[in-house]
Each structure stands twice: as C-alpha cells, then as structure tokens.
C-alpha cells in the first residue's frame, strides 16, 4: 500500500518533470545556441495554453484545437522574433533580460485585456477521460500518462535531431563556437529563427498539455519560467540531455518533497514542528538542490560532457 503510494508519487514527479522538460528544452537551446536569455519563454507556454483553449472552444475538438493553437503560437512566436528578439539577440544579456521582461508585462496584461483575468476552460479530451487502477483506492489519470508519453517521444525526437542531423550538428557547433559556424557560411540569424520557433512550439505544446490540469490564466507562465531556468542551469546550459535529466530530477524531488517531507520530519522533530517547517522546507528543496549542484559544478550536470 505504502509502496504503491510511493510509486504513484514517483509517477507524478516524472510527469511534472516532463512538462518542465518541454518548457526547458526550447529555453536551453535558444540560450545555448544563440546566447540569448529569453525571459519571455514562459509567455510561449501561456500563449500555447490560451490559443489551444480558445481553438478547442471554437472547433469543439481537442486534436483540431491543439493543432490550430500550436500553429497560432508558432505564428506569434515568429512575429515576436521578427519584431524584437532578432534585434535583442545582438544586445547584451542585461538588455535581453530587460526587453523580454517588458514582453512578459505586455503579453500578460494584453491577455487580461482581451480575455479578462478569469481562467479559461479546457477539459481533458474525451478519449483520455479514464484512469488506470493501481489499487482499490489509487488510480492514475490517463491524461497524465499521455503527457509523460508525449514528453518521452519528444525527447527522443529532439535527441535524434540534435545528435544525428546536419541541423543538429550546426546547433551543437553554434553553441560552442559561433564564429566557426558563421565561417561555414551558415546564416546564424536563420538558424536562430528556426531554433527559436522550435523552442516556442515546444513550450506552447507544454502549455496546451498542462492546460487541462491547471488554471489557464495570464500569469501561468511566471512560475514555470523560474522552474525552467532552474532546470537548464542544473542540467547545463545548451544541453538537451541535461535538461531532460534535470527536469526529471527537479520534478521528482519537488513532488516527493511535498508528499513525504512533512510526514518524515514529524517522526524526527514531532508533529507541530514538522507542520510548520515541512511545507517551507519542501518549497525550498529544489533551490537547495540547485545551489548544491552549482556549488560543486557551476557549469551544470551535463555541460561539457559531450551531451549537447
């Protein structure tokens, strides 16, 4: 019974990690390849959820709505790139932070202006409204399994793209030596646009998949953004493999911490003390983890290990 619960929490952690990975993958690529700090990456996640929710409401079909929503996110991503990010790319990190922070404010408040502050509805598609029974009391929703599966498939596709294709070779080269790539006659701006669009769609996909689980509201990207940064820094900037394993690590540590830390502390320091310390410590866990990793390996877990 208790081991089933542990297993279930482990699954929950893995699934949370998959959502984090989808958001972090694009961020780490853009950052690693183009040396571009994009705080507005969380906005792509929000836009993905919004557009999908709106399209699903319009077409009355989840699959159709998802495709239309992702297309919309892709177009908006291109517009943002064309208007702003293409310019910011050639600026200092600080100006990138400032400019993309401005974009967060504009998009967040813009969404509120257009659709109001109240969350939008998006239900789990009919085909996934069932769950797997683990024990008489414990079940696991099919939608969460679908997210996990999608995450693993996309991770494999990304790995293949980065490790086995010419495009991937350029991306890997670009992340370590920009001059050489330029010297090869590759248009860095074009490469950037491609990588950026790809990352934007991945984040939008994460938002769309998470949509039926969470509250779709203008500020939903804020929290995920910080977590995604934690993931890519722990995993090593520019490393997709690093982002994958760091996302799982963070997802599992966070979930298990919330699930078991308070109960475990109660055994150590007594129930009242644990009730006040436990939740706070659980919230801190991933930051403690990040501090530990960076204190030992400032470049992250996978950077420089050939795992780009």
């Amino acid at each position: 019974m208790s081991s089933t619960l542990f297993l279930l929490q482990l699954l929950n952690g893995l699934q949370f990690g998959m959502v984090l990975f989808l958001v972090a993958a694009g961020l780490t690529l853009v950052f690693g390849v183009m040396d571009f700090i994009n705080l507005a990456h969380g906005v792509q996640y929000t836009l993905g959820a919004y557009l999908t929710a709106l399209c699903v409401a319009k077409f009355g079909h989840f699959g159709l709505g998802l495709v239309a929503g992702l297309l919309g996110a892709l177009i908006l991503g291109y517009v943002l790139e064309w208007l702003l990010f293409g310019v910011l790319m050639h600026r200092s990190h600080l100006e990138q932070v400032l400019g993309t922070f401005g974009v967060i404010l504009v998009v967040t408040d813009g969404l509120k202006m257009l659709f109001g502050p109240a969350p939008l509805p998006l239900a789990v598609p009919e085909a996934f409204q069932w769950s797997v029974r683990l024990t008489p009391t414990l079940v696991y929703p099919a939608w969460r399994l679908a997210i996990m599966l999608a995450g693993v498939v996309l991770a494999l596709v990304l790995w293949w793209l980065v490790a086995k294709t010419r495009l991937g070779m350029l991306v890997r080269a670009g992340s370590t030596d920009r001059e050489t790539v330029s010297a090869l006659g590759v248009n860095i701006d074009k490469l950037f646009r491609l990588v950026f669009a790809f990352g934007a769609v991945l984040a939008a996909f994460a938002g769309a998949m998470a949509g039926p689980l969470i509250s779709i509201e203008p500020t939903m990207g804020d929290n995920i953004l910080i977590l995604a940064f934690v993931v890519i820094v722990v995993g090593g900037i520019g490393s997709v493999r690093g982002a994958f394993f760091a996302a799982i690590l963070i997802g599992v540590v966070d979930t298990l911490g919330r699930a078991f830390l308070t109960g475990w502390l109660a055994g150590l320091v007594g129930k009242p003390a644990a009730a006040s310390v436990g939740p706070a410590l659980a919230s801190m866990l991933i930051y403690i983890l990040m501090a530990l990793v960076l204190a030992v390996r400032p470049q992250g877990l996978f950077a420089g290990a050939g795992g780009k």
Binding site: R91, L94, E95, G99, F101, G102, L105, V106, M113
Partner: peptide
Amino acid sequence: FWLGLLIVAVVLLRGRDLS
C-alpha cells in the same frame, strides 16, 4: 501593459550604447 511597452521601447530605441 504600458510599462512593458515603455521598457521594450527604451531597450529598442536606446541603441547599442549599453552593449
């Protein structure tokens, strides 16, 4: 929204001096 626009405008218009 307007503060965001202002920030973006400042970054774009200020040119490259900061870089």
